[in-house]
Each structure stands twice: as C-alpha cells, then as structure tokens.
Design a protein around this nucleic acid. Sequence first.
DNA 1: ATAGGTGTACTATTTGCATAATACACTAAA
DNA 2: TTTAGTGTATTATGCAAATAGTACACCTAT
Lengths: 128, 128
Amino acid sequence: MLDFSELVLNTAEPVYAQINEFVKRKIFLGKVKKGDPLPSRRELATLLKINPNTAQKAFRALEEAGLVLTPKNTVSILYFDEELLLEIQREMTADIVAEFVKKLKENKLSFDEVTVLLRQEWEKGEKE
Amino acid sequence: MLDFSELVLNTAEPVYAQINEFVKRKIFLGKVKKGDPLPSRRELATLLKINPNTAQKAFRALEEAGLVLTPKNTVSILYFDEELLLEIQREMTADIVAEFVKKLKENKLSFDEVTVLLRQEWEKGEKE
DNA sequence: ATAGGTGTACTATTTGCATAATACACTAAA
DNA sequence: TTTAGTGTATTATGCAAATAGTACACCTAT
C-alpha cells in the first residue's frame, strides 16, 4: 500500500493539494507501480489528522487526472497507462516552459542571456 | 502624471495587484521617469471605479518595493535609483530561472531536452 | 443479521483575503 | 477660518475556497 508516512504537511498550501502532489510525484518518479492500493480515505485521514473528506478531495482529483481507479466499495488503486503518463508529462513540461518564456520576455531578456543563466543554474545543482 | 487610462481591469486577479503590476511594468520598460507623480488615491479610485483603499494598498506595496515615495500630505511620486532597478530585475530573473530549473528537474528532463523546448517556445513567440 | 469496513453526497463551518466604509490628521489655498 | 484636497489607520463587509460534520448506500466477513 502506498506509504504516506513520509508526507509532512505545511500550512501554506492546501492539504488536499499536498496529498495530490505527493502521489503524482511518486508516480512520475517511478517509485510506485500500477495496481498499488492507496490507503482508505479514513485511514489516511487518521494518519494525517485531517478530515476524511479532505483525503477524498485529493483522491478524486487524481481519479479525474486518470491516475487512479476506485472500484465499488473498495479502496482506490493506482492505474495509468504509460502513454497517458508521457502525455501528461509532456503537457506539464510545455506549460512550465511557456510560462517561463512569458515571464522572461516581460523582463526584456534575450534568448542568449537566458541560456547562459539557465546553464549556470542547472550546473549549480549538478555539483551537489 | 502617470496615466492609468489604458489600464483595463480583469476580474481574475486582485485589483490592487493589477495596479501594482501596471506601474512596475511601466518602470521596467522605461516608459516613465523618476519624479513623475502618480494620481492621488481618490483620483485613481474614481477613474477605475474602485475604493481608494484599494489604490492605497497598491501604492503602499510599490513604496515598500522602493519604487515610489510619498511625501507628507501630497501625492506619491516615482522614485528609484538605477542600481536598485537593476538589482530587482536581476533578483526577479534569478528567481524565475531557479524555479524553472527546479520544476524541470522534478520532471527528470535533461539539460539538452530543455534547451530544445525552450528554443521552440521562444521562437514561437518571435514570429507573431 | 449485524458489525465494521469501504466510498460518496450534501451541508455547515471556518478561514483568509480582497474590498469597502468611515473617520482622522494634516496642508494649502480661497 | 473654512473648504477641499492630500495620505492613512481601523474596522466592517463580502466572498470564495478549504475543511469539517453528518448521514447514506454498499459490501463482506463474522
């Protein structure tokens, strides 16, 4: 069963969004496989000391994103085909890039300046 | 006096943020010079059909950002030294780049993939 | 059959934020 | 001195989103 014990909630973002993100990341990082069950809404609620409906809201969102199935009267399980996964990832990436470009153009930066900054920032992380 | 007549408000973002952005853009795009006066809170409020306190909130934020001065009992004026301006711009850019890199690494993209996507997106805008 | 576990729908409450209303202190000019 | 214009502080209102409370329908094992 998917393990939520490492999820520490912050007060800034909404709880349901944090749960959602947590699961999405597990999926995209390949740390989890199709068919794995999630805890029940009530179980997760007890663990995180939240209301079951908050868990429900997060799981519902995952379901609508096509990452989770919820058979009748039983716990939700992870379900996604690889094609969808790639599609979502492409979409997310495209959005990120588009927003990035928009912001930088507002700041009147040239493409070359951006690539330089980008390379610096990228390599800064590589060294650690 | 700084002209707000071209500012059309949308209902999505908060009004005070839109005012703030409007002025900041004018400054960063060099469309405005030091010493230029802003309209009074009440004047702007009348023009935009909003409450004077909403204008106040926007101007206050600009003041805290070091872009505006408000002498006693008179209208606010633009004030900033070029050094600060560059500094802010550098800072904003650095933040944008850092966030961008962080997100993309979460998606497990390589630097080369990113530059390709970036060039595509950048040129897409150039053609219009 | 019944007890305890599922998900879910509906409603209520809380909370945070944006906006508005009001009143005050001050200056300058009529 | 009075009037009309500044900015500002404080409080009230409105609203939307997040969270919580409660109840229901369903299944399964005891």
